[in-house]
Computed example of a mutant assay.
Amino acid sequence: MTSLTRQEEKLLNSFEEVRRCDRIEVHADSLGSLGKPFTAMPAPDEFAPELAGVEYDADLSEHMVRFETFASHWSTRSPLPEFSGEFSLSHLFDVFSQPPNPWASMEPTEFRKEFVGSLKCIDSSPISGSGRMSFLRAQPHTNPWEIWYQGMAGTGGEPYPPGYVKLELSYSQYIETLTITKGTSGWQYLFADISLSDSSWRHAREPLQAMLDVFPELFPEYDYAPLRARLEARL
């Protein structure tokens, strides 16, 4: 049996922690077999000509997750505060095999067409249907990759399409943080240059506040202080 990397072990342990927790209800989850290792990944330009000059992040040999499917959708049980989470990670082979985004051609400017066309989805929420997605932005000679999140239309701004925010995370840091947040709805906003203080952000702010109140007790082996500081900086 192929041994797991340290990153895969951490992600799998986080996945099992949610399954075992009697104060969390798992509505659906999926754990696939191991796919291609990093050493077997084709060069990006072998997936598509437009990826010429795109380079893999330098730390992927240690941090790439090989699970072909890795997904969970859960919610808390009473008497805990009500909040939920979801993630659905894609293997990087499948990420780079994605066809060009068909929505790119509908953008009103050339910059926005190019921007949307360069995004590759790495994480999504297909079970809840919330439409939230995380992307890597594959650009030539840019390392590490940019990570973008598409959520509420009130975020972002010109010259980018509404709803897209850049995250202060690399791909490997995204995976690492996912093990801590368990995919809590909107956790990505903790790493975006936005304010959550306005009343219109209550629906996004309250799950994060609840997570940081509850998870240190449910999962005491993780350090939630850095995430708490990030939330406080956005209030």
Rank of each mutant, 00 (worst) to 15 (best):
T2Q: 06
T2V: 02
T5L: 12
R6G: 03
Q7I: 06
Q7N: 15
Q7H: 13
Q7E: 06
E9Q: 14
K10N: 12
K10H: 11
L11S: 08
L12D: 07
N13W: 07
S14W: 07
F15C: 10
R19P: 02
R20G: 01
V26E: 01
V26S: 03
D29T: 04
L34S: 09
K36L: 11
K36T: 06
P37A: 05
M41P: 05
A48M: 12
P49G: 15
A52S: 15
V54I: 13
D57F: 07
A58I: 06
D59G: 06
L60Q: 10
L60I: 14
V65R: 13
F67T: 03
T69Q: 09
A71G: 05
A71E: 09
H73A: 14
H73D: 05
W74A: 12
S75I: 07
T76H: 07
R77T: 15
R77H: 12
P79D: 07
P81L: 10
E82D: 11
S84Q: 11
H91V: 09
F96H: 04
F96R: 01
S97C: 02
P102C: 05
A104C: 08
M106V: 08
P108K: 00
T109F: 04
T109N: 09
T109C: 12
F111A: 07
K113T: 06
E114H: 12
F115Y: 15
V116K: 04
S118L: 14
L119P: 02
C121S: 07
I122Q: 09
I122A: 04
P126T: 13
S128Q: 00
G131C: 11
G131M: 00
G131P: 06
F135W: 06
F135V: 09
L136P: 08
L136A: 02
R137E: 13
Q139G: 04
T142C: 13
W148G: 00
W148Y: 08
Y149H: 03
A153P: 02
G154N: 05
G154F: 10
G156Q: 02
G156N: 01
G156F: 04
G157R: 06
E158A: 13
Y164E: 00
L169I: 10
Y174V: 10
I175L: 10
I180S: 01
T181Y: 07
T184L: 00
W187L: 08
W187T: 03
W187F: 13
W187C: 04
L196S: 13
S197N: 15
S197R: 02
S197W: 12
W201V: 01
R202M: 11
E206I: 02
Q209K: 03
V214A: 07
F215H: 03
E217T: 15
F219Y: 01
Y222P: 00
Y224H: 15
R228H: 14
R228E: 09
R228L: 12
A229W: 11
R230H: 00
R230Y: 00
L231P: 04
R234V: 02
